[in-house]
């Protein structure tokens, strides 16, 4: 049951060439087991979104391998070759407004996903699956199906996009900053949806975020990325209570807290902080 089904080895992405070469992701390796929630934490520019795009097969890695059930999927490129992969690995992105094509209703957006199915489903089967998926994310199908994106709130839109991914019964959901464009009170609701789905459907979630608080709330394991490299990974409690890498320590020390920034090993004075940031 808890054998890893998905593994990534030495994944690297280099943009540009020659003098202007930028290594966005460097030598990233990890495994995913069924039903676990992994948070990948990093600031903007840490390469976490580039990583997400490679894992979703929207961009081709420069080096490294992606293995699914022992099969190397790194080289697959054409949409038709990738359909089986996308039945297992799906994504949710940052901006709920941008995730919607404003010309289509919720129903149209959802139905597009059936394109991935091997067998043609009947109309009734499709509708049944859509109803099930919307119910799973806490939306009323009757109320939602015929709406356009402008008739939904940000939180509702993001739920529809999660429901869209669920239509193919994926085993791994990659959520790239999927809650950061939402207000705090709605954010918690989406996090709860993800947690609930992971438990009920034994779905693995790669939750990519800049917010270490959300990682703490949600994840079983935490990976910390810094300048393209994975500098620390381990169980959430261990990483966040006993951080090893200086960057993780600083991140934890700098998170604003209602009770004020706490004196901790990573806490820097204003001068030190200014130096660290330049």
């Amino acid at each position: 049951m808890n054998e890893p089904f998905y593994s990534v080895k030495n994944l690297t992405k280099v943009f540009g060439g020659g003098q202007e070469q930028v290594v966005a992701v460097k030598d990233v390796s990890f495994d995913v087991t069924p039903g676990e929630i992994i948070a990948i934490v990093g600031e903007s520019g840490s390469g976490k979104s580039t990583l997400a795009r490679m894992l979703l097969k929207l961009s081709q890695p420069t080096a490294g391998t992606i293995m699914m059930d022992g099969e190397d999927v790194t080289k697959l490129k054409r949409p038709n070759q990738l359909k089986p992969y996308w039945r297992d690995v799906q994504g949710v992105f940052q901006n709920p407004a941008g995730s919607f094509n404003q010309f289509y209703s919720v129903r149209t957006v959802l139905e597009k996903t059936f394109n991935l199915h091997e067998h043609r489903l009947s109309k009734a089967e499709k509708l049944e699956r859509i109803h099930k998926a919307l119910n799973l994310v806490g939306l009323d199908p009757q109320q939602t199906l015929e709406r356009g994106s402008h008739e939904l709130s940000g939180g509702q839109r993001q739920r529809v996009i999660i429901a869209r991914a669920l239509l193919v019964d994926p085993r791994l959901l990659i959520a790239d900053e999927s809650t950061s464009a939402l207000d705090a009170s709605l954010r918690v609701t989406i996090l709860n949806v993800l947690k609930d789905l992971s438990q009920r459907l034994n779905l693995s979630v790669l939750f990519i975020t800049h917010d270490i608080g959300q990682a703490y709330y949600l994840a079983d394991r935490v990976f910390v990325m810094y300048r393209g490299e994975m500098v620390e990974q381990g169980p959430t409690e261990t990483v966040l209570q006993f951080p090893q890498h200086d960057y993780t320590k600083r991140l934890l020390a700098d998170v604003p807290r209602l009770e004020g920034w706490t004196a901790s090993p990573g806490d820097l004075s204003i001068e030190e902080l200014a130096k660290a940031l330049t």
Binding site: R187, G213, Y217, T236, L240, Q241, L252, V255, L258
Partner: peptide, 13 residues
């Protein structure tokens, strides 16, 4: 709003 403020603290696990 206060409840939705997620701090990396063992109390929210």
């Amino acid at each position: 709003l206060l409840a939705a403020t997620l701090e990396p603290d063992p109390s929210i696990r």
